[in-house]
Amino acid sequence: MHPAYSVIFFTTASGAGYGALILLGINAMFGHLPADRWLGFAAMGVALGLVTAGLLSSTLHLGHPERAWRAVSQWRSSWLSREGVLALITFVPAGLFGIGWVFAGQTGGVWAWFGGGAAVLSVLTVYATGMIYASLKPIPRWNNRWVTPIYLAFSLATGAIWLYALLRLFGLNPYPLAIFGAVMGAAAWAAKHGYWRFIDSAPATATTGSATGLGDQKPVRLLEAPHLEENYLQREMGFQIARKHAEKLRRVALTCGVIGLVLLLIAAASSGAPGVLAAVAATVLSALGVLVERWLFFAEAKHAVTLYYGNESV
């Protein structure tokens, strides 16, 4: 599948933003959130900023962005529509929670419940994002049980790391948050490793034989394509460039991710400027690792239509 930068940025940025919202909401529910207005402004700014930037970027690949509002109408059947609806609804409790924190200077009471509501809706939104991909049968590398939990795990891990770095900049060191980020990050990368092993060894779902119906125990191969130049289907669904370097890129993603987590733990254990620096570096490396991971998620996914264009199995 063609890795569209707008969609990669959307899933990684809004993933981290929703992860941060989830953690802020849960901490408010348990009364762990300092009612500092400036901290609230920065934290909600980062969380909602990431979410909003991601959502806006996702409209960039649309042919008619001005019609995007129509996408909230088909929530009965479409995961993309459900994601749109959930993303919009999340803004309501998240906005109220932010108003309470920034303007009223409170994170408890009813404001905490808004935070909790935003957390629940954020989980559902990220789940819906994962399901957009996991529900597509023609792409077996997405249509499996690994995809949605990995989306959720990376969302929580990157959200925790962003938040932790921000709190360090405010002179706080909530080391349980760093440990949560490290554990969740380790789980996410371990699951991603499992996913890679799974897609490498999964048996073919469809073959050129089943796509043409001619394969009854006989080999079927493309003799002549219908056209000499690439068409939309090949550009969008037949992306090949990354597969050659997939192994290297997987190592790059994993290395960035793991170094990010180590830096996070170093930050939690150190104080002052070095700690802050390590926390910021951890955020940057984690974001980089997840960006490469997400790029591979698209580039490595084979679509069934490629069976008509010379690919033997998906």
Binding site: L62, L80, V305, Y308
Partner: peptide, 17 residues
């Protein structure tokens, strides 16, 4: 149609361009 292209991803037969 908003041109999100998701339908073309959902079709294994390449029917949509």
């Amino acid at each position: 149609c908003i041109g999100c292209k998701l339908c073309s991803w959902a079709c294994p037969y390449g029917a949509r361009e």
